[in-house]
Computed example of a mutant assay.
Amino acid sequence: MSSSELFREPSWRGLRPALPEYVAAEPAVTDFICRTLGEYGAISQLLLGGCAVGMFRFQPAGGDAKLVKLVPESRRSSMMQAEDIATWLAARDAPVVAALPGYPVWDGDYGIVVMPYLHGRRVEASEQDMALLGRSVAQVQKKLASHPDRLRWERATAERLADLMVVRSSLATGRLSCGPNPERLATLARDPMLDFVLQDMERVPLHGDLNPGNVLIVDGKAILLDLEDVFHSVLPPILELVLAIERYVLVVVENDAHAVSAGRAFVKAWQSNMGVATVTGSTDLVRVFRSLALRSLCVLASAEQHGAAMPDEEWNKFFLLEQLAGRRAHAIALIFEEGVA
């Protein structure tokens, strides 16, 4: 698996997605999009944290707004797979958004994906929103379990994990030195307690990148966006649950009682919709949280090894998450306490 498939540039820096803003798109971009779509209207470019991303709101005269994504040729394969998956899921009433018929289309160095413009809001760390998220995550995982490409996804996942384990070994032995704190990274890579492979646990296809920028609450339902990681994310579901609790709850809620109530609402909804009685068994959950951070650090190391410039902020984000797991160990234990369902 290439480094470009291992790492995608994040749409924002830090742990909390910036609030979206829109500004008028450049005339050349407006012309390219309108010419490709074969219709004309007002086009605004999305900014996150003041930085332009390759997404645009297209408002045709007298019609509904659409979201337009410009995708570079280097992401053509992953984007085509992601949109095929989204279309397959949407046809089975899964809570996702799919591209409009006929998209993506490719013109020169860029592809264009057009989808309905969703008027929604971000997930809040409330019992209600976290229950909605848990329900939608379970629904998508259950649908993906029967996808006809699952075996191919399993092979891609195994290849990705093998690549990351090579990176981990290189970091642990000192053959590879990366980031603003290579000593700390090497120490984590050498820690035998950290395991992001979890070889003995049952695997299912996951969303794979369940960060707060990839979910919207729309009409009382959590809608999952951006499925570019599904095809290399056939993994133990605990990894997806841990990521959701980490990003939607522990990062934003300092109060343990609040965090536990919101986190339990998510876990209970996921269990109920998956039809499972237990989530963790004897798994050491703090280790899973810390291992997830190490996996992300190995992805950054691989990208840097292949010439990508990784800002210190991105490295420090995952060092912070690794520390957060230990600091919030009590809340984590209560959130995933067996018998929650």
Rank of each mutant, 00 (worst) to 15 (best):
25 A>F: 05
26 E>G: 07
28 A>K: 07
36 T>Q: 09
38 G>I: 05
41 G>M: 07
44 S>L: 15
47 L>H: 11
52 A>G: 08
66 K>V: 01
68 V>F: 07
69 K>Q: 14
73 E>A: 13
76 R>T: 10
80 M>K: 06
86 A>F: 08
87 T>P: 02
97 V>N: 08
100 L>A: 06
101 P>W: 01
105 V>R: 15
110 Y>N: 14
113 V>P: 04
119 H>Q: 15
120 G>M: 12
122 R>D: 05
124 E>F: 06
130 M>I: 07
142 K>Q: 14
147 H>Q: 05
150 R>I: 06
157 T>M: 08
163 D>G: 07
168 R>V: 01
173 T>A: 01
174 G>S: 03
176 L>M: 05
179 G>Y: 01
182 P>V: 00
186 A>I: 03
196 F>P: 12
200 D>T: 14
200 D>L: 11
216 L>Y: 13
220 G>P: 10
222 A>R: 05
228 E>Y: 02
231 F>K: 03
234 V>L: 09
235 L>Q: 14
237 P>C: 09
241 L>S: 01
242 V>I: 06
242 V>L: 04
244 A>C: 12
247 R>F: 02
248 Y>L: 06
253 V>E: 14
255 N>A: 08
258 H>P: 02
264 R>P: 14
265 A>F: 12
266 F>R: 08
270 W>Q: 00
283 T>Y: 03
284 D>Y: 05
285 L>W: 09
293 A>Y: 04
295 R>I: 00
311 P>A: 00
312 D>C: 01
316 N>S: 10
317 K>L: 11
329 A>S: 15
330 H>W: 13
332 I>V: 13
332 I>H: 14
337 E>F: 11
